[in-house]
């Protein structure tokens, strides 16, 4: 299995000292949907821009067998990228958008894009400025879905969109885009919304990866225990890395703790990605 993205010691400095990204090591395999999750300013966008060759970086980075710093133009034939699905140039006519991508992208299938748009309210004669944010999202999807790219990179794609549009965007991606040859790297800080579609999560905080795991291993490594006040001290003896009290009941988060013993103290479960993220961030703070 050759990695789609391979990063070794990926570092990005602004100025002399400040490291926006500090020596990241990670690898993304084919067919994975990886969520790069972090707070604002944690370094998510810097990682994305390095992967796409949009910013200079230090360290080693290999994307689809290419070096993004020197082979950006060739790379973009196999990579699709959406920064903000609701942003397309306002003066662009839908028909011209299709003609443009067809003219510059060898792997664009115009019939597929038109078929996708036919099922929406977007007309070929519309200009982008006449479209609602939801419709711009549909147009963006039509363009991206019609490109046979091996890697799709999404950087906070649904920021500022309403829930309905966001949900439809991700559902379309899952249903019409994903297959075993395609890979998605997506950044967001709205964890709870995309965790159901991810196969892997990476948490980034202050330029460092604080978690990098397949979703299915979260249950093996992490446990969430909910106890009443009477069991709290006993639960704490297993050294939770984080806890949260709501309405007198406390949720404690453990890494590598004995599950059978924890189960005797209260309600044992697997933390959601969102809970795990919050717990990890509290620990780091």
């Amino acid at each position: 299995m050759t990695a789609i993205i391979e990063a070794r010691g990926l570092t990005k400095r602004y100025g002399r000292k400040k490291e926006a990204v500090a020596g990241l090591d990670f690898s993304v395999g084919p067919g994975r949907i990886v969520g790069l999750i972090g707070r604002n300013g944690a370094g998510k966008t810097t990682v994305i821009k390095s992967v796409l060759g949009l910013t200079p970086y230090e360290g080693h980075l290999n994307v689809l067998g290419r070096n993004p710093a020197t082979e950006r133009d060739a790379l973009m034939r196999e990579v699709s990228f959406i920064a903000d699905v609701a942003v397309l140039p306002k003066w662009l006519r839908v028909r011209d958008a299709l003609a443009y991508v067809q003219g510059v992208h060898p792997a664009f299938n115009r019939d597929r894009a038109e078929a996708f748009l036919a099922a929406t309210d977007v007309k070929l004669t519309h200009k982008v400025k006449e479209l609602s944010k939801g419709m711009v999202t549909q147009l963006h999807l039509a363009l991206v879905l019609a490109i046979r790219a091996r890697l799709l990179v999404l950087d906070e794609p649904t920021l500022g969109l309403d829930l309905l549009v966001r949900r439809r965007f991700y559902d379309t991606l899952l249903n019409d885009y994903m297959d075993e040859e395609r890979t998605i790297l997506v950044t967001t800080h709205q964890v709870e919304e995309i965790e159901y579609l991810l196969t892997d999560v990476m948490f980034i905080e202050q330029g460092k990866l604080v978690l990098n795991t397949p979703i299915e291993q979260i249950g093996e490594r992490y446990a969430q225990l909910i106890v009443g006040p009477s069991q709290l001290e006993a639960a704490r003896s297993f050294k939770p890395f984080s806890e949260r009290t709501v309405f007198g009941r406390t949720a404690l988060f453990f890494e590598g703790a004995p599950r059978e013993e924890l189960a005797r103290l209260g309600e044992l479960g697997t933390p959601s990605v969102a809970d795990l993220f919050v717990a990890r961030m509290q620990e780091a703070a």
Partner: peptide, 17 residues
């Protein structure tokens, strides 16, 4: 204009050097 209207990343997402 492409930076002002924030469309530059769209143009750069396509294989145009």
């Amino acid at each position: 204009a492409e930076r002002k209207d924030r469309s530059i990343l769209f143009w750069k997402s396509l294989p145009v050097s």
